[in-house]
Design a protein around this nucleic acid. Structure first.
Lengths: 137, 137
DNA sequence: AACCCTAATTGTAATCATTCTTATTTTGTA
DNA sequence: TACAAAATAAGAATGATTACAATTAGGGTT
């Protein structure tokens, strides 16, 4: 996970201004552990930044994703989730409680040579099932 | 990949009728290699089954997915793709031409014990980047 | 074969996340 | 302070998917 300073520098390098709104979105995402949606970011920040619009959040997240500074998770079929951690890792979604868990995964050890001539920019691993908490109920 | 007969039996076992429309959707999906969307299935079948509605296709695919007889791919951000192959394998989407490639992957060799107490029902692996064909242009 | 009951199909309307548009505001710079 | 470029905000538009209600088809029984 990058620090806010590092993120800020990355943005500057790409001629993207670190505005007040963008800083708040970045801050919130960096501090959150639960892969928030746009809706959740919006609800969390609108007290602090009453003028904030969802368009700005979408906009900010789009830039960050294009620069690979955040990950967009499509594990949930009807809403995108966002993750400030950019190291390759897996995501497990519990079908019962909908919670998304992180887990480590070593992609290099299971790759085939089939993709030798492909340029790979992003690796996403999604598991679905039931989490221990829900299993024990 | 299962045969149509096997699929038909699986449906019967779960009290889901193999109607004319469902048979056609199954047939089309089983024979197609390119992970079609609902739109593509609809366009391909409406000549043969003029009364076919998209709702029926959505409906059929939902049942098949619930029974794990097909895979739903969320690799494309705005439209779901469907795959008749149910063995765990990876999908690579080219960001340039949007083509989706299959590739083999050995998930067991890269799993951690972190998920030992989780019930895992589905494993999805999505890679994104540029395919050789587009790279060579 | 006719009947019945249930499930499936169809077409349309509703939903809802995301994107587009445009006017206004803010930012960085001179 | 003033200017030009970029960002923001609000609402409208888009488009895939789902919900709904009326009609139709299927399977079992006599």
């Amino acid at each position: 996970m990058k620090t806010l300073n590092e993120l800020s520098n990355e943005l500057k390098k790409n001629n993207i201004r670190l505005t007040h709104q963008r800083l708040k979105v970045l801050e919130y995402l960096s501090n959150s552990k639960n892969h928030p949606t746009v809706e959740q970011i919006y609800n969390a920040l609108k007290k602090e930044v009453p003028s904030l619009s969802k368009t700005t959040i979408y906009n900010t997240l789009k830039y960050l994703a294009e620069l690979s500074l955040i990950q967009v998770l499509a594990i949930d079929e009807n809403e995108a989730h966002f993750d400030a951690a950019t190291e390759t890792h897996g995501h497990f979604k519990c079908s019962t409680c909908d919670k998304i868990y992180d887990f480590d995964i070593d992609m290099d050890s299971c790759e085939t040579e089939e993709l030798d001539n492909f340029e790979i920019n992003e690796k996403l691993v999604y598991f679905k099932g039931i989490c221990p908490r829900c299993l024990s109920k």
